[in-house]
Write a protein that binds this DNA or RNA. Sequence first.
DNA 1: CGTCAAATAAGACGATCGCCTGAAATACCG
DNA 2: CGGTATTTCAGGCGATCGTCTTATTTGACG
Lengths: 213, 213
Amino acid sequence: MAAETTVRRLVDAAERLFAERGIDAVSLREINTAAGQRNSTALQYHFGDRAGLLKAVLAKHRPEIEARRHQLLDEYEARGPLPQADALRSLAAALVRPAAAKLADPDGGRDYLRVMEQLVHRVPPSLPEDGGGSIDRWRELVAPLLPEAAVRLHQRFMAIRMTYVELARRASGPPARDDRLFTSHLIDVVSAVLASEVSDETARLLAEREQRP
Amino acid sequence: MAAETTVRRLVDAAERLFAERGIDAVSLREINTAAGQRNSTALQYHFGDRAGLLKAVLAKHRPEIEARRHQLLDEYEARGPLPQADALRSLAAALVRPAAAKLADPDGGRDYLRVMEQLVHRVPPSLPEDGGGSIDRWRELVAPLLPEAAVRLHQRFMAIRMTYVELARRASGPPARDDRLFTSHLIDVVSAVLASEVSDETARLLAEREQRP
DNA sequence: CGTCAAATAAGACGATCGCCTGAAATACCG
DNA sequence: CGGTATTTCAGGCGATCGTCTTATTTGACG
């Protein structure tokens, strides 16, 4: 069997099993078997260990998402200044849409989302360095639109986490014929997270903190 | 050793290890050892299996949270009708505060939050039936304030998931001297999730769906 | 066609897992 | 104080894990 197809089958089996049962809950033996390999050396040979295999799973989908997000951010920047609400929704869409497109990708897209969610929850954040960095670019573009410096960072991370949590849940269910309504509503809510303003109570606590560093 | 203290030590060890390493990623042997038991029968004897032990961990903290939330909901109902925004923030607070109080509970409160997050992500939702049902009561009180029937359910679940995800992250870090700012800001954002309105695009997709069931 | 490197197969190693059995120790109570 | 039930200890069972070593097959190329 050609090396390329074996690698591909291993990656496909891994993304499915990582999604269904958890990255660390599935044995390398089982992945090998599910990929049609009779015994357990093919995986060792091509990927070394579990981390190498996981990296390969992510690399399979990452470039497409990065490209789409960069494109949306290009369009956002080209469009020039927008009213605050519209700007935030555009940016929320740039966060959500590229990942949400994976819901309709029959080649493991849904499994990829479920794997990503597991990584988003890891602390410290063990996501492989963003390389292309479309998320970093997104964060920089969002920053000036957010309310208060002290909570800005937190607010952005919450938006990202919510995006992956909700997409992973959607991907865990049976495939839907149409994810447009779900996606649009998720963008609405993520926009609301980004647009959420600090309450009087929060502002007061913030002021107290500044006095006592 | 008295039975009661052994049970207590097992539960404490379990909640810590469940939180740090994952409910299914820790062996019963290790929990037994961490609790000071020399060999592995005490756990079997008192709890049967992993699920029984998990139930005991949850039962240790659940009543306190349920009581606090029911109290906040009592106050909310007693206060009579409020402006929409104030009502939503009161309800968001009733969702967040009882759980957030666990951040400052030195007796495993932080570990409990991290365990809860793992359960919130399980699909199908394998949380033990709400018993007291303060969350059910919360859902009923929130419903009439939310925008569109078709997305109402989704919006409430997102608020709940976000609450536990963010609290678990906070609980994963080092204990803070003061969680009031964090909690108040989380309430702000959860309120925004609940208050988020459907965009034009979402409304249009919603209308399309109604035409084609 | 022959050769050499890449890729796959086969099997075994020690470690650890959940679970079980049977005996010793402890607590409880008439 | 004595007897019974509850709780803890000691150890082993089969299964499975990740990893390693060695042998066989496959494919590209002069």
